[in-house]
């Protein structure tokens, strides 16, 4: 033995305060976004140039004309009321889908019997394109916001339902074991461990559905001519008011973008512990 001097025990290495939770997101660069913006503006300018020189079709208006039409239409109020109708149906449909999807997904996740019972029906209904149900829905519910909302619910239900189901099922065994050793009962474990643990997965489902719902609301409005932005777009197309039609399309795009940004912001706030929502809501 060569130890001679008494040596103190090594100080614990991890006692210093951890650096405050770094916020890589906040810092994460403005620059790439700026670059993307510059590129988009460049594309617009190119399009403006092309439509002013080479492409002189009535059906391809210049971006500046579309912008002017957009301004005018917004002031006129016709389009805004369309936006109101569309977003109303959108919010109703997505809201119902969230409630129904989370509830049914949770029940299916909690009960093996329920899952075995419903599985075949679900697997049959899920791949059915909701657009294929529009004729049926019109017969049953008539043309109008009820059909629109029903179609949105149908299409956006599945991602939420399945993400809830797999989220609840996929909760790791260790966290459940830990709760069991603390004496929690099965339903307590479900409410206090499985559901919160599934929240990240549920949030992903809602994000996916929020995009699907917008596609559905516009599609149904276009197909059933039942008002809203979709109907506005068809109306302008039939009237060959192409600038106004494009203005409507631009508004749909802006809405979609705003929804994606809002959803990923919400996701970061609500399920903040999820390390892997690096996607900026653009998927």
């Amino acid at each position: 033995m060569s130890t001679t001097t008494p040596v103190r025990e090594a100080p614990a290495t991890d006692r210093e305060p951890a650096a405050p939770p770094a916020s890589p997101r906040r810092r994460r660069s403005f620059r790439p976004q700026l670059r993307g913006l510059v590129f988009a503006v460049g594309l617009l300018l190119l399009l403006e140039l092309l439509t002013a020189t080479v492409i002189t079709s009535l059906y391809v208006p210049r971006p500046s004309e579309v912008a002017a039409a957009l301004g005018q239409e917004l002031r006129a109020g016709d389009m805004l009321s369309g936006v109101g109708t569309t977003m109303g149906a959108y919010a109703q449909g997505l809201g119902i889908a969230i409630v129904a999807g989370v509830l049914s997904g949770a029940v299916l996740g909690a009960s093996r019997t329920a899952w075995q019972l419903f599985r075949v029906v679900i697997e049959f209904l899920r791949p059915l394109p909701s657009v294929a149900l529009i004729p049926f829905s019109i017969l049953l519910l008539g043309v109008g916001s009820t059909t629109t909302v029903a179609m949105i619910v149908y299409a956006s239900l599945w991602p939420i339902l399945f993400n809830t189901y797999y989220g609840v099922r996929g909760v790791n065994e260790v966290s459940i074991d830990a709760a069991r050793t603390f004496g929690l009962k099965r339903w307590q474990i479900f409410l206090r461990i499985q559901l919160p643990a599934a929240a990240t997965s549920i949030a992903t489902g809602i994000r996916v559905s929020s995009a699907i719902a917008l596609i559905l609301v516009i599609t149904v409005e276009i197909l059933t001519r039942s008002g809203g932005l979709g109907y506005y777009i068809v109306r302008m197309q039939v009237a060959i008011r192409t600038e106004d039609m494009y203005a409507g399309i631009v508004v749909v795009g802006v809405l979609g973008y705003a929804i994606a940004v809002l959803m990923s912001w919400l996701e970061r706030r609500v399920v903040f512990w999820n390390a892997d929502h690096r996607t900026d809501g653009s998927r």
Partner: peptide, 19 residues
Amino acid sequence: PPPEMALVFQDYTRSLYPW
């Protein structure tokens, strides 16, 4: 699991509740 007993798991990332 008896109430007089507690368990510390190897996998702390899973046994703690991140929310």
